[in-house]
Computed example of a mutant assay.
Amino acid sequence: MAISIALLKTVVALAMVDPGAGEPTLDQVRAATERFRDVNVALAEGYMRDPLNLCDTAEMMGRPAELGAMGIHFARPDLLGISGPPNPRVSGSGTHTDFLKPAILIYEPQADGSLELVAVENLVFADSWRAAGHDAPPMFHGVAYDTMADDPSTPVDEAHLFEPHHDRHVWIYRENPNGVFAPFNPAVTCEHHRNGGAHAGHASVPAHAP
């Protein structure tokens, strides 16, 4: 397993290239999203906290624990094309991939109960992306989005209640030893997550006193 993790880090590092035509630099993405360090600004602009209040980790999705965590997701349903509750999984019709206006913000819970912005993310559902005429996942800076889909033969939910989708994390607010475009970050922790929820296939996150 250590070999596969090392290989993953190498592939991510080698894949990083300069922005393609029309793509923003990472500095431009940071400048466009800096205001969301204040989670209240994000809420005021339509980002909604994961209703299950999950702090996602690699282990929860059947991956090696040493890969780290993602954190708590705050999403813009309109940019994802989500128009209703999970039925039975979250699905949407959006094909939004503009990182100057990311569909998802990711926060790490802090010991004092606050939230620290660690990454931004875009996500498109595989069926909607294919229906829009695309044969391959989206790309950013020459790196194809990761593809996540649940494997019904395993006890965990690899797609964390979402229909199959393509997503790209960009770790511009927390250095990631796995690479700036890796899905998980070992420098992020859910240790201080409070009143965490759980769903089928996810281990319950221990609740902490407020």
Rank of each mutant, 00 (worst) to 15 (best):
A6G: 14
L7Q: 12
L8K: 14
T10D: 11
L14K: 09
G20T: 00
G22E: 05
E23M: 03
L26Q: 01
L26F: 08
R30M: 08
A31L: 06
F36L: 01
R37S: 11
V39L: 11
N40L: 00
V41Q: 15
L43R: 15
G46A: 05
N53T: 01
D56E: 13
D56K: 11
T57N: 06
T57P: 09
A58P: 09
A58Q: 04
E59G: 11
M60Q: 14
G62V: 03
L67F: 10
A69D: 04
G71K: 01
I72W: 01
H73I: 02
H73T: 02
A75W: 07
L79S: 08
L79Q: 12
P86T: 10
R89D: 10
G92Q: 08
G92L: 02
T95Q: 13
D98R: 06
F99Y: 14
K101C: 00
A103W: 04
I104G: 04
L105C: 08
A111Q: 12
L115D: 08
L115K: 01
L115G: 02
V120K: 03
A126K: 15
D127H: 11
D127L: 04
W129C: 10
A132K: 11
G133M: 03
D135W: 01
D135E: 12
G142E: 11
G142Q: 09
D146T: 11
P152L: 02
S153Q: 13
S153N: 13
T154Y: 00
H160K: 00
P164W: 01
H166V: 03
V170E: 00
Y173E: 05
Y173L: 00
N176K: 02
N178D: 11
G179Y: 03
F184R: 13
V188F: 08
C190Y: 06
C190E: 06
E191Q: 06
G196M: 03
G201H: 11
H202E: 10
P206Q: 05
A209T: 09
P210W: 05
